[in-house]
Amino acid sequence: MESAAPTPDQVFDHLEGRWRLDRTIPGQATMRGEAEFRRLPDGRLAYREQGRVELANGQAFDGHRDYVFAHSDGGFSVYFAEAPPRLFHRIALAREGDALEGSAGHLCAADQYHSRYRFLADGRFVVEHRVSGPRKDYLSRTVFTRG
Results as ranks from 00 to 15, higher is better:
Arg38Trp: 08
Arg38Pro: 05
Tyr113Ile: 07
Glu128Lys: 11
Glu96Asp: 13
Lys136Asn: 00
Trp19Cys: 09
Trp19Asp: 04
Val11Phe: 06
Ala4His: 14
Tyr113Gly: 01
Gly147Asp: 12
Ser132His: 12
Asp137Cys: 02
Ile25Val: 15
His129Tyr: 08
Phe69Trp: 14
Gly43Lys: 06
Pro8Trp: 03
Val78Lys: 04
Thr145Ser: 12
Arg116Ser: 06
Ala81Tyr: 11
Asp9Pro: 05
Phe125Lys: 06
Val11Arg: 00
Ile91Gly: 03
Cys108Gly: 09
Tyr117Ala: 02
Arg18Asp: 13
Val53Asn: 10
Phe125Ser: 03
Gly133Tyr: 00
Gly58Cys: 10
Gln50Arg: 15
Phe88Trp: 10
Thr145Trp: 02
Tyr47Asp: 08
Arg65Phe: 08
Gly133Val: 00
Glu128Thr: 15
Cys108Ser: 11
Val78Ser: 03
Ser115Gln: 07
Lys136Ser: 00
Gly97Ser: 08
Gly51Ser: 13
Val131Trp: 00
Phe119His: 10
Ala104Gly: 02
Tyr67Arg: 09
Arg52His: 15
Asp62Pro: 14
His64Met: 14
Arg52Asp: 15
Arg20Cys: 06
Ala92Asn: 09
Asp66Cys: 14
Gln59Tyr: 10
Arg118Ser: 06
Ala81Leu: 12
Pro8Leu: 06
Gly102Glu: 00
Phe144Lys: 00
Ala81His: 14
Asp62Arg: 15
Leu87Gly: 06
Val127Met: 10
Leu93Asn: 01
Asp73Met: 05
Thr24Gly: 01
Val68Gln: 07
His89Ser: 11
Ala35Val: 09
Ala35Tyr: 05
Leu55Gly: 09
Thr145Val: 07
Phe88Cys: 08
Gly105Thr: 15
Glu49Tyr: 04
Thr7Arg: 12
Ser72Ala: 15
Pro85Cys: 06
Ser115Asn: 09
Ala83Arg: 11
Arg130Gly: 04
Gly147Lys: 07
Gly147Asn: 04
His71Met: 10
Pro26Thr: 10
Gly102Ser: 05
Phe76Tyr: 10
Arg18Trp: 08
Asp22Cys: 07
Glu34Asp: 14
Arg39Cys: 01
Arg23Trp: 04
Glu49Lys: 11
Arg86Phe: 06
Pro85Lys: 11
Val11Ala: 03
Pro41Lys: 07
Arg130Met: 07
Gln112Lys: 09
Ala99Gly: 06
Ala46Ser: 12
Ala5Leu: 02
Gln112Met: 13
Ala70Thr: 13
Tyr67Asn: 03
His64Arg: 15
Ile91Tyr: 04
Ala83Leu: 13
Gly133Asn: 01
Arg130Phe: 05
Ala35Arg: 03
Arg38Gln: 12
Arg65Ser: 12
Arg38Ile: 14
Arg146His: 11
Arg124Thr: 05
Asp137Pro: 00
Leu107Trp: 01
Glu128Gln: 14
Arg135Cys: 01
